[in-house]
């Protein structure tokens, strides 16, 4: 959808990556994907936090943030979390070389709306960036599997259960993705349009974030912190 892409190009992107070459490479990919986008780069957690502090002062919000998780002074998840709390409209995308649940589940629960694999070919990467921006985040089988387990675990005291619970279609989607099917294949299997399945995936991302925040709050209350 070029309209949206152009729309986004008018906005700002925060790129957090400590390796200079990779940063340049991601920079290039972002510029190709969204021509005209203005990119602010940060090479550490500290710098990224400073960028966010500065931006909030000026009122110029980031529309997009591409965040590396392994930063020299901490985990990029902190940035993801901060963005989810302070600027829910910002699209946080995690850049990683692993797409397994151990690395990504926490980031998604913290509010990431998509992820990129950094060893992908640049053309492929541009494609993925655009897709995420259009509301079609990727979901690897292991993350889908982990999400299924997460939503199947009963949380009897959860006040947000009804909002966070998945619909039957969403559960079907997750279980097909967990078997290694792509979004397009899942759509064919379910007799739906790929866009519909993509919207399920997006909804699943958000619901995971909602339940995780509710659980964190409950845990805090239980420990007497809140």
């Amino acid at each position: 959808m070029p309209a949206l892409a152009t729309n986004l190009s008018a906005h700002k992107c925060l790129l957090v990556e400590d390796q200079p070459r990779t940063r340049d490479w991601l920079h290039g990919a972002l510029t190709s994907a969204f021509p005209g986008i203005s990119i602010v780069t940060a090479s550490s957690l500290h710098e990224a936090q400073a960028c966010l502090d500065a931006a909030s002062g000026l009122g110029g919000d980031f529309t997009l943030a591409v965040i590396d998780l392994g930063l020299p002074d901490g985990s990029g998840i902190d940035i993801v979390r901060r963005l989810a709390a302070e600027r829910p409209d910002t699209l946080s995308i995690v850049a990683t070389i692993y797409d397994d649940d151990a690395h990504l589940f926490e980031a998604i629960a913290a509010g990431a709306r998509g992820y990129l694999l950094k060893d992908e070919d640049v053309d492929l990467l541009i494609g993925y960036l655009r897709r995420i921006e259009q509301g079609e985040p990727p979901l690897s089988p292991s993350i889908a599997h982990r999400m299924l387990a997460h939503f199947r675990t009963p949380r009897p005291m959860s006040p947000v259960r009804d909002n966070a619970g998945l619909t039957n279609r969403e559960i079907e989607t997750l279980s097909l993705l967990s078997k290694g099917l792509t979004v397009a294949e899942t759509a064919t299997r379910l007799g739906l349009k790929p866009q519909t399945v993509a919207s399920y995936v997006k909804a699943i991302y958000q619901k995971l974030n909602i339940t995780s925040r509710a659980e964190a709050a409950r845990e805090a209350i239980r420990r007497g912190l809140a």
């Binding site: 089988p141 292991s142 792509t182 294949e185």
Partner: peptide, 11 residues
């Protein structure tokens, strides 16, 4: 699980 990952990557 292994086959799912292999399938995903291949796809």
């Amino acid at each position: 699980r292994v086959l799912a990952e292999a399938r995903h990557e291949t796809a």
